[in-house]
Design a binder for these strands. Structure first.
Length: 255
DNA sequence: ATGGTGGTCCAACCA
């Protein structure tokens, strides 16, 4: 089973890229973040024509998450206990016996800001919910745009980024707490190239200079991580015309 | 040291 995550930064603008990538990569599941599309406008038909079912939780202008899958998803959840939040950042569904939790984690803007406090609070509440999910679903994958670079090796310039948003200790600790629920960052189960990133700022020619961060993650429960055979970052879509600032991350699991 | 690009939607926000 091939499972991928991609922050597309507007599904409307990026639909041709998504369709092109699905056609080439043929994942079983693609978790999409930042669709920025209300449910009424979701491009169901175009995605269906590419051979994929969709479930989604959309919002105007901001956020929005979706799960595209070859096999129809079931048990769809968009809201969790203790987090009464209009922002559409969470989407859970079961695909072919695997529980898929798609997260678009709060960016947080700047350490110490109101949005930063919201990020840490959001993470704490989501973590409490994930703790239940781990016991409820042995085959669980939690993936998406975490807006946290787990370690210094996931940052192009760890000195410049030290203590900054996406890299601060409270954020990293929050991520470690999630990982401590026996959710493994499958990318690090394999030998990887140096300076492997999944996001590059549009500004200052970030991609050309590889000034990136690895903030798009695939975490898998023990039962699944043990069967993971491969995890790679596919940089190609980031080279296409008018790309998202993120590129897909793909994991493969043995049947 | 600052600001730079891009999406949404036309001023200002979010990233």
């Amino acid at each position: 089973m091939k499972i991928a995550t991609w922050n597309v930064n507007s599904l409307k603008v990026r639909l041709p890229h998504v369709l092109q990538w699905l056609e080439a990569a043929q994942p079983d599941v693609l978790a999409v973040q930042e669709t920025k599309t209300v449910d009424e406008n979701f491009p169901l038909a175009e995605i269906e024509a590419a051979g994929y079912k969709s479930v989604f939780s959309g919002q105007k202008t901001y956020n929005g998450v979706a799960i595209l899958s070859k096999v129809e998803a079931s048990e769809v959840v968009t809201d969790i206990p203790y987090l009464d939040d209009p922002q559409r950042r969470i989407l859970a569904a079961t695909v072919d016996g695997v529980r898929v939790v798609n997260l678009y984690v709060v960016n947080g803007s700047e350490v110490g800001s109101e949005k930063y406090a919201y990020k840490l609070d959001w993470l704490a509440k989501v973590t409490a919910w994930l703790q239940e999910q781990v016991t409820q679903y042995p085959k669980l994958v939690v993936l998406g745009d975490f807006n946290i670079a787990p370690e210094d090796r996931d940052v192009h310039d760890p000195v410049a980024w030290e203590g900054q948003i996406l890299c601060s200790e409270p954020e990293r600790t929050a991520l470690q707490t999630i990982q401590s629920l026996d959710l493994s960052d499958v990318f690090r189960q394999f030998e990887q190239p140096e300076k492997a990133f999944s996001w590059w700022d549009y500004r200052a020619a970030g991609f050309r200079r590889n000034l990136g961060l690895r903030i798009d993650l695939i975490l898998a429960s023990k039962a699944l991580s043990e069967s993971c055979t491969r995890c790679v970052i596919d940089r190609e879509p980031r080279t296409w015309e008018k790309p998202s600032d993120h590129t897909p991350v793909v994991a493969e699991f043995a049947e």
